[in-house]
Write a protein that binds this DNA or RNA. Structure first.
Lengths: 187, 187
DNA sequence: ATCAGCATGTAAGGCGTTACATGATTCA
DNA sequence: TGAATCATGTAACGCCTTACATGCTGAT
């Protein structure tokens, strides 16, 4: 029960559903997971090697044609590690929002800059929310399977928080603009 | 306009209001900022040294008594760097929620475990929300200064998103329990 | 032909965390 | 006197990002 890397758990989690290549794993991570977890090739391939060394996964040659394509399968030991991780109630949940940093220190710049920084953030959130809504719609069409609910729950977490972000953006812009106006009137 | 580290900007931002020691800076970061940004001594002290080397801040001996206490001041050059950073509209906003990972892969464990993981998360959010509400109350009592609104905005961002988290927690637990019940009935 | 996408991997560097090391002060 | 807090710093390690290097395949 060594302190496994999170990327290991992501890989094991994905492989618990289907066999995948490193490249496929990257694509899956870039999908619905991407708004709360990231991964890169420079991250994934070394992790696959370590997991294979630890016998948590096995590789089989999946080249239909001779190129070195490898599909990975999870082993029983891998499933156990995944189960242990789920049972461990400690979880690191972190946010690092540079935008909030810029708002917090907004007094060091003009109010217009702060409004602009909020607008840039707002646009990004709107785009991401669209993406999440698309995922959600796709899930509703698809026949309900066992894991469906879990995917839906994470997507809905994203949708709800992003909606809260957008509400905050409106409020924040209004508040800053109001203060700009107050100042103008008192001049 | 080199690609400055974010911790540098946090330090400059804090020093733009008041002179502080490294130890004080840590305390400030652990305050209202902590829910969207982190810092550690192993992070802060080397950054202070680099900022001093780059003449963005200056140190003066603040030992009332002979111990090597140093208070840092921001320089004009430091203020400019801070202003440039605020003007730069690109910002990295990331969340890494292991809890969501555990929910996403919840199918690999029992439903009870998923409910439990949500509850652990929920309790943490409730505690943090209390803290944020306290900050908010303190801000409302304090006389309104220039930067007040900016502090308020980031705190209110936290409050709003944490409320959305809690609403999601209730919904998610209900959904999982409902599915457990459905299954029991169809047995 | 050429470009996008499939596919695997390595290397350097950046940044941050944790633990360690040290010592003074203040308050109970 | 002992514990908590103030105060500064270093060192090792972990983990991830970015960029690089390589080559095949399928569609236009």
């Amino acid at each position: 029960m060594a302190r496994e890397k999170k990327i290991d758990m992501v890989i094991l989690g994905l492989l618990s559903h289907e066999d995948l290549t490193g490249y496929d794993i990257k694509k899956r991570i870039d999908g619905a997971i991407s708004f709360f977890w990231k991964g890169s090739f420079g991250n994934i391939y070394p992790a696959l090697k370590e997991l294979e060394d630890g016998k948590l996964i096995t590789a089989k040659d999946a080249s239909e044609d001779g190129r070195g394509k490898k599909a990975y399968q999870i082993t029983q030991k891998g499933r156990e590690a995944l189960g242990d991780w789920l049972l461990d109630e400690q979880a690191s949940n972190e946010i690092r929002y540079e935008t909030l940093l810029k708002i917090f220190f907004g007094g060091a710049g003009s109010r217009q800059i702060s409004v602009h920084n909020i607008e840039v953030f707002e646009r990004k959130v709107q785009d991401d929310l669209k993406m999440l809504n698309d995922y959600c719609a796709a899930l509703e069409k698809d026949p309900a399977n066992e894991d469906h609910m879990y995917y839906y729950l994470t997507v809905s977490f994203g949708i709800e928080t992003y909606k809260a972000y957008l509400a905050w953006c409106s409020k924040a812009k209004k508040m800053i603009r109001q203060q700009m106006q107050d100042e103008e009137e008192s001049r």
